[in-house]
Nucleic acid binder design. Structure first.
Lengths: 204, 204
DNA sequence: GCTTACATACCGACTGGTTGGTATGGCGTC
DNA sequence: GACGCCATACCAACCAGTCGGTATGTAAGC
């Protein structure tokens, strides 16, 4: 029978291994071993290691995109509640080891931003593309709650991603999710304060 | 004497090159070339590449520690003003290319956290040690402005570092400091809101 | 129905260059 | 003449990438 899954197995292996030990420290042989395929399969599907990184970043965008699209935080009627529910959802994802809950794009872009512009662009597209899915809810929340400031919905959306990426860094430094959860709590509190929402029902 | 110590030159080279291209992608030969010394000098001062990473993290702690200790943000009488001035100071440092203003410890810990615990610990000490220098001002600000919440001075100090580390990641993704400056503005606004400080005199 | 031709998916031994690390020896200073 | 400091030469391991090959399917030609 024809096996078409070598490519997918390699992409999943890349996301798993690179998040744990970084991109440059991960060899092609190691990925092949993890994926259970040979080097021939690797270079059949990807013309280079860098090409795999780009494909893996796109794969990461797709899988996480599907996860967030199907998440329950879109349910509330009030757009602000949706934004707060998003932050809660992100906080709930902070479980297990840092290698398990951190971001492939954020990890990879730190290593490749100055040396490979295609990888940098693919990682940027992943992070910024996700941020853009938050803009509609934030914009509606600003109008609905009559909030105006010298900041835009996009800048707040990107700030949420900055907080999460930074929380990942601190979690890696400690080896524990706790410090990341604390930052997510601060992020939630910031949004509550921006929109004058009482902080009483926070699930901390 | 003009001739700087080979050790210091290697440490400075490591901080410069690793911030640009990551730790694993940086070879010993490359560092020696950058520092203008030979491999013999490298392995005379450091028993391994990993040992250099630990020493570089400690060196980073010392040089940045001196920078922040001598910075003007300690001047204001009101502790809250000192905290806000700290954030402004960090924002002003966001100039040039990402490789120039980002954090060696944050960059390195992402690559080494799961594979080398000594490097991880040295990077954690750098980031957390800096955060701890903020705790006194935040604690005083909480008492002085009679602010209480379900958060601690240390957790806010660590949150500032998370925001900055995340801002670095986004800056690397875009290749530009602008997105990091925006996150620093959000961080300042959060602290102002936490302490009920008017946001009129912000220098955005 | 059978041949020929070509495309896709994958295998694994191999290569040339690079890697972190070593062995040894020179040189200035105490 | 011991010792810190550093240079040169070298090595085994590992690296990304190559290449000739196999297995399977597909489709045209007759």
């Amino acid at each position: 029978m024809l096996k078409l899954d070598a490519r997918i197995k390699l992409l999943n292996a890349a996301i798993e291994v690179v998040r744990k030990q970084g991109y440059a420290a991960t060899s092609v042989d190691e990925l092949c071993k993890k994926a259970g395929v040979t080097k021939g399969a690797f270079f059949h599907h990807f013309e280079s290691k860098n090409a795999l990184a780009i494909a893996a970043a796109n794969h990461w965008s797709e899988t996480t995109g599907a996860l967030f699209a199907g998440a329950p935080y879109h349910a509330p009627a009030d757009p602000l509640d949706r934004v707060l529910a998003y932050i809660d959802f992100r906080r709930e994802l902070l479980r297990g080891t840092p290698a398990e809950f951190t971001c492939f794009a954020g990890t990879t872009v730190q290593e490749a931003f100055a040396t490979n512009d295609d990888i940098r662009a693919a990682c940027k597209a992943s992070i910024f593309g996700h941020a853009e899915t938050l803009v509609a809810d934030i914009s509606q929340a600003m109008r609905h709650h009559k909030v105006k400031g010298d900041w835009t919905a996009l800048s707040l959306a990107l700030h949420t991603q900055a907080v999460l990426q930074g929380a990942f860094v601190l979690a890696k430094a400690t080896g524990d999710a706790a410090v990341a959860v604390e930052s997510a709590n601060h992020l939630r509190r910031y949004v509550e304060l921006l929109f004058n929402r009482s902080t009483k029902d926070k699930s901390k």
